[in-house]
């Protein structure tokens, strides 16, 4: 059992300076460990702080207190306190965040968007192209769209481009915020397969899934953020 991500005493409150300095407490003293090959699903009603927690694990939000340790190569890096350069390195190689929304970059083709993280990790261009094409096909994205920038695509098409980009070369730790929301049943099945394949190859998954069927077919464990107890 190799620990891949450890959250320790994570709390988060938002202080809104321009709205009378009101403070919104969201998370209080959250702690858990995720090991290699596990899929932890975060549960709880809307507003309980699932997405906030996921963003903290990625280093996107800064917690008020606590640590997030991520195994990066041989060492454990504290995402909360590490130098920004190191956080970027961890994100490039080890830790990825997948939402249902694609951040479109003007003028960059779909194929290049999907290849981009692989090239950043040193995968040769030819191999990256082949793997990107295979996965786009598996996600039922028509080949005529591959050379186009996805800015004009439908929401569902953009979402599948985003999933292809993240799963074409899965990182060791993957944070998934509703990646299957609003996909049709066929594509949802493909995404569930991709998640399970990544996990079986050793990836650790922490995710939010509102669809119960998806949750049941992905989770190896769950964490309910409402009453703060770990279910087996």
């Amino acid at each position: 059992m190799i620990p891949m991500l450890e959250a320790k005493q994570v709390s988060k409150a938002f202080t809104l300076h321009n709205q009378g300095g009101v403070t919104l407490p969201v998370l209080n003293n959250i702690g858990f460990t995720v090991h290699r090959g596990e899929a932890l699903v975060l549960q709880g009603p809307s507003g309980v702080g699932k997405s906030t927690l996921l963003r903290i694990l990625y280093g996107n939000y800064r917690p008020s207190t606590g640590h997030v340790m991520v195994r990066h190569g041989e060492s454990m890096v504290d995402i909360v306190h590490a130098d920004p350069r190191l956080v970027l390195q961890v994100r490039r190689k080890t830790l990825s965040y997948v939402s249902q929304f694609l951040r479109v970059i003007p003028r960059v083709s779909t194929l290049d968007i999907v290849k981009d993280p692989m090239l950043g990790r040193g995968v040769p261009d030819g191999e990256a192209t082949l793997r990107a094409q295979n996965l786009l096909a598996r996600l039922n994205l028509p080949e005529r769209l591959w050379a186009l920038p996805p800015s004009t695509f439908s929401g569902g098409e953009q979402q599948r481009v985003n999933i292809a980009r993240s799963f074409v070369d899965p990182t060791e730790v993957m944070l998934l915020d509703e990646p299957t929301a609003s996909l049709d049943a066929g594509n949802r099945t493909v995404v569930v397969e991709l998640i399970n394949e990544a996990r079986e190859k050793g990836a650790s998954i922490i995710g939010i899934f509102h669809d119960e069927a998806v949750r049941d077919s992905v989770a190896t464990r769950s964490l309910d953020l409402t009453p703060l107890k770990v279910a087996a």
Binding site: T15, L16, H17, N60, Y61, R62, P84
Partner: peptide
């Protein structure tokens, strides 16, 4: 100051919150 996505998505200073909003 900090990582770009951190500063823009979770701004802490009153002025940055104003800019980001």
């Amino acid at each position: 100051q900090g990582l770009t996505d951190q500063v823009l998505d979770d701004p802490h200073h009153a002025y940055t919150q104003l800019l980001a909003s």
